[in-house]
Amino acid sequence: MALTDSQVCVYLHEDDGQAPISATDRFQTISALLEKGYRVSFQPSAHPAIRKNDREVPAIVSGSGSMTSVDGTLVPTTGTPTMAQAALEAAESVRERSGAAKPGSWLPWFPVIDYDRCTNCMQCLSFCLFGVYGVDDRGKIQAQHQDNCKTHCPACSRVCPEAAIMFPKYKAGPINGDQVSDADLQREKMKIDISALLGGDVYALLRDRSERARSRFGKERDADKALVERQKCLTKLGEIMADVPAEVLSSLPSPEQIAKRAEEAKARAQKALSGA
């Protein structure tokens, strides 16, 4: 799936001369479509206004459960017991024929920046190991590759000194978008500076541990010990960022890769800050 794939939108309307949709049918149909990931435009008029854009594939569902796609091809609905089911079949059929994206293949978890707060310090860009952040052509920080973000990981919001990073699906404020209080800003976890994290540079710490592990590995030829070192390091990181999911920590790249990516991210942040 690419984030720019086209999407089906279902236009639900009441057809000329047919029985209007009952409130129950309307609710069940719209609920069913939303649950399957389809957008719905409900227009109780006989002729829905289709606002097609180049990434929208319209599927038109009329009041009685008979339906057609915009190109006029009828989608058979016989044998469907409910309007909700008929509408779903229509949406699916239009999607398959148009090659539009299958909804629900990505859980939309990603950082959203509050530019009323952001000072463009680039700490988030330096910190994120997964290339979610970038800068625009004027050097302004942006979340650019949202689908690289690790689901349920809010770690970068912890390093933002301005509490400017939101994850709208996070459980608690201010990360979920709730107001930022003075207490939030004062709270140590909201003011972590990368250089202070873990008593120094988190990546340096990972690197140190990696080097120590490597030297021991060289002497002892004990692969398990290197693994144990890495686990210790990840556990330490996990203690500091208690709600970073274990699967995210365990899927972190190797210390060598982390160090390399961190250097690259820092260089990009530095470049953006210097306006180069």
Binding site: L3, T4, D5, Q7, C9, A23, R26, F27, I30, L33, L34, E35, K36, G37, Y38, R39, V40, S41, F42, Q43, P44, S45, R51, N53, D54, R55, E56, P103, W106, P108, W109, F110, V112, Q146, D147, P168, K169
Partner: peptide
């Protein structure tokens, strides 16, 4: 309540997803 009222409205499965997709909608 929206369905009962019979007013026109737009319904999206997930506004966050539309944002990430930079959906023209």
């Amino acid at each position: 309540r929206l369905c009962d009222s019979k007013v026109p409205f737009e319904a999206v499965p997930d506004l966050c997803e539309l944002s990430a997709r930079k959906d023209p909608a």
